[in-house]
Design a protein around this nucleic acid. Structure first.
Lengths: 262, 262
DNA sequence: GGACTTGAGTGGTTTAGACCATTGCGATTA
DNA sequence: TAATCGCAATGGTCTAAACCACTCAAGTCC
C-alpha cells in the first residue's frame, strides 16, 4: 500500500527493498511450519540449507528468530520441532500456583537454594534494613506441567523474619510469612523488561543461552506498607505472556480526559 | 513425525562448565564498556577480533547480545557506541505524553497513516460491531526526545464514531473521542510479551530487523463498558521498561492468604 | 534380560574470507 | 565558498568448512 512517510528517511533515489536472505527464508519456513502440528518435527539444518540453496549459517539465523518467537523448539542432538504458543500470567498480586491451575496447567515449584548473606546498601534500602544486615536469598524454579518456566530469586530481610530460613521449602513462601509472622501482602511495584538468558539460567530452564526472556522485578510490601521482599524473576520469553487490567485513575472530573490524552 | 514432546529434559548434577567463547568475550566487552560513558565509541569489529584473538563472527555474536540488551548502539557505517539505559512506562490507563513528560522527556507522536477497512469476525467481536463493518486503522510513531520509541496500531469501530477519520491527526486521539463523542476510557485489558522487530518496524524505529521488542496489546473500554479500541504496540526492547503497581485483590478474609500463596 | 558400546544424525560453535551498504571526511572541483 | 566526488572505515550479510556436544537407537556383550 502507498505509505507516505512524511519527513522520514526515504531519500536516496536508489531505494533498494533490501530483504536479507535469512528473512525471506524465515517466512518460507514459517509457511512450512503451518503445516506441522505442535510438537511435530522439521527437517535438519543441513537438509534445509541444501533444499533452499543457502548456507547452513543462513538457515540457522532464520531458525534462531523463529525460536526466539516461540514458534520453534530446538533440542540439541535431537531435532527441530514446532512450538506450542505462550502461556499467560496475570499481572496482579496473586498466586503463580492459582494462575496456572486456572489455565488447566499443573504448577510445581522447587527450591534451588536458600542462602544467607549481607545486604549491600541498595538492597538494604529496598528491604528497609541496615546495610550489612542478614538477607535470605531464595532461588526457586517454577514449572508448568513439568516444563521449566521461570527462575525466581527472592530476597527477604531476616531481621524482620527471624528464623525464616528454617521454615522455607518447596511450599508456599507467602503461607509461611502469614502463619509464622502474621504478614500479608498489601501491594507491590513491578517492572517488566526484556533480557537475554545467561548460560546458568538457560541450563535450568532447558533453554538456550542468549534466548529472549521477560525480566520481572517485584518489590512487595505488607498491608502496613513495610517492605517484605525484593524479587527478580526471569520468564521464558518464548512461552510466557503477561496480562494486566488497567483501570482509569479516577472517576470523572475535568482532569480525567487530560490524563488520558494520547 | 515426532510423537513425544521434546524439551522436558532437565539435567541435574553434572554440568560441564562449557562456556562458549562468545559469552566469555561478551563479559570482557561488558567490562571494557564500563569505562566508556554513554555515547562513547568502541573499537571496530575487526579490531576487537584481532585484539581478542577470535573471529569476527564471534565478536559479532557477543556484540549482538549486548545490543539486544540495550547496552550498545550500533550504527551501520559509523561505529559501535555505548548505550543509554532504558526508559520506563507506567502500566496504567494514562497518557504516553504525560508519562514521558514526567520523566523529563519530550514526547512527540506522528500519524503514519489512517485507513478504513472491513472488520474480520475476530476484530468485530473485539470492537463490538458486526463482521464487515468499517474499522478505522491508525498507525502512529511515538518518539521521546525525537528518538523513535514505538509503533502503535489502533483500530476503532467507525459505526460507533461516525466521521472519526476526519478528526484524527497528530494530536490526542482520546481528546477527540471525548470532545466529539463524549467518550471517556474506563478500563483496559493489556498483555505484554516479547517479539522480534519486522524489517518494516525496524526501518521506522531506526532499529535492526530481528531486534528485541516488547509487544503490547490493549483492549480498551469506555466508562460504560463498551469497547472503544484495539491497540497493538511494539516498543523497543532495548529502550523500554514497563512498570505496574499491584494491589492485593481484597482486604482481609480467610481467602486472601490462600490467593497469595506462592 | 540387562547393561554397555558404538555410531549416525542432530544442533552448537568457531573460523576465515568475500562482498555489500552506509557513513563521514578529506580532496577536488565548479 | 559551496557543492561534489572518492575513498576508507564501519557494520551487515553470506558462504564453506571444520569440529564439538548431545541424543537415540541399533548392536554387542555379559
Amino acid at each position: 500500500m502507498g505509505e507516505n512517510l512524511p519527513g522520514d528517511a526515504v531519500e536516496n533515489g536508489k531505494k533498494s527493498p533490501r530483504t536479507p536472505k535469512h528473512w525471506e527464508l524465515k517466512e518460507r519456513l514459517a509457511e512450512l511450519l503451518r503445516a506441522v502440528s505442535p510438537g511435530g518435527s522439521l527437517p535438519g539444518e543441513r537438509a534445509l540449507a541444501s533444499e533452499f540453496g543457502v548456507s547452513r549459517t543462513t538457515v540457522r539465523k532464520a531458525l534462531a528468530e523463529l525460536t526466539a518467537e516461540g514458534r520453534l523448539t530446538r533440542v540439541h542432538g535431537s531435532g527441530t520441532f514446532a512450538g506450542e504458543g505462550k502461556l499467560t500470567q496475570r499481572l496482579q498480586l496473586s498466586s503463580y500456583t492459582e494462575d496456572m491451575r486456572s489455565h488447566g496447567r499443573r504448577p510445581t515449584s522447587s527450591l534451588l537454594d536458600a542462602r544467607i548473606g549481607a545486604a549491600d546498601p541498595e538492597l538494604a534500602a529496598l528491604l528497609g534494613i541496615r546495610s550489612g544486615d542478614d538477607v535470605l536469598r531464595l532461588r526457586r524454579l517454577r514449572r508448568a506441567d513439568g516444563e521449566p518456566m521461570a527462575i525466581e530469586t527472592s530476597r527477604l530481610p531476616l531481621p524482620r523474619f527471624p528464623g525464616l530460613d528454617r521454615y522455607v521449602g518447596d511450599g508456599s513462601l507467602y503461607g509461611v510469612l502469614y502463619q509464622h509472622y502474621g504478614v500479608e501482602l498489601g501491594h507491590a511495584e513491578e517492572t517488566i523488561e526484556t533480557a537475554l538468558a545467561t548460560p546458568a539460567e538457560a541450563a535450568l530452564l532447558g533453554n538456550e543461552a542468549g534466548a529472549l526472556m521477560l525480566l520481572l522485578s517485584r518489590h512487595s510490601f505488607d498491608t502496613d506498607g513495610h517492605p517484605v521482599e525484593w524479587v527478580r524473576s526471569v520468564y521464558r520469553g518464548d512461552r510466557y505472556k503477561f496480562v494486566a487490567t488497567l483501570v482509569s485513575p479516577q472517576s470523572s472530573d475535568d482532569s480525567v480526559h487530560a490524563r488520558l490524552e494520547r
